[in-house]
């Protein structure tokens, strides 16, 4: 006995006649074809897809997780403090940060010397953005030209991540440091 499925289509005689329904289907697809063809012929775009990368989408969802952006402070230095939170949380372990120490910059003594992301393994999950305590890493909604010819060229470094700014300036206005309560430190 044939198994009865809960979602088995219930077809009337007309539908079971097959041909009319086929014609209806052909009319639908043919209609789409004609409509789109007309658009093409009149110089408009009859497709939803984009000519990537010559043409990039402007209507990415704001929440789209594209490529990473390292934000900058007003002076252009990276916001990142090389805390490695992103690298630690990264499920694919693709972020590598080498920290440097700059005692002259009292507010931000630790800075990234090397900040690299291996896009050949990145899963674009966005956890790094969540983990960042400094809002130093974001994921722009735009998707950049990532593919490369070998896996080593898919490691993107600090400079590239800093300079790729699809939405223009991502320098973050950084609030002035709080007034320093005087302490007993010898001048």
């Amino acid at each position: 006995m044939r198994k009865q499925y809960w979602n088995e289509a219930e077809m009337g005689l007309w539908e079971r006649a097959y041909l009319p329904e086929i014609l209806r289907g052909l009319a639908i697809t043919g209609g789409v074809f004609v409509r789109n063809m007309f658009k093409w012929m009149t110089g408009r775009k009859g497709a939803l897809t984009t000519y990537y990368p010559e043409e990039t989408r402007w209507d990415y969802a704001p929440a789209n997780r594209g490529k990473h952006v390292l934000t900058r402070r007003a002076d252009g230095s990276p916001q990142c403090v090389a805390c490695n939170m992103c690298a630690t949380v990264c499920p694919a372990k693709v972020i590598e940060i080498e920290a440097g120490f700059d005692p002259a910059d009292e507010a931000h003594p630790k800075y990234p010397v090397r900040f690299e992301i291996d896009y050949s393994r990145c899963v674009f999950c966005g956890l790094c953005v969540e983990a960042c305590p400094e809002d130093a890493i974001r994921m722009a909604k735009e998707v950049p030209d990532l593919p490369a010819h070998d896996r080593w060229s898919m490691w993107l470094g600090k400079e590239e991540l800093l300079e790729w700014q699809p939405q223009g300036d991502v320098a973050k206005p950084y609030p002035p440091p709080p007034p320093r309560v005087p302490n007993g430190d010898r001048p």
């Binding site: 005692p103 009292e106 003594p109 709080p178 309560v181 302490n183 430190d185």
Partner: peptide, 20 residues
């Protein structure tokens, strides 16, 4: 209240840095 600040990187010796 704002936190009281102190010397952030004091060179205690050539080997050790102190964050007060």
């Amino acid at each position: 209240d704002a936190k009281a600040h102190a010397t952030k990187h004091y060179s205690l010796s050539p080997r050790i840095v102190l964050d007060n």
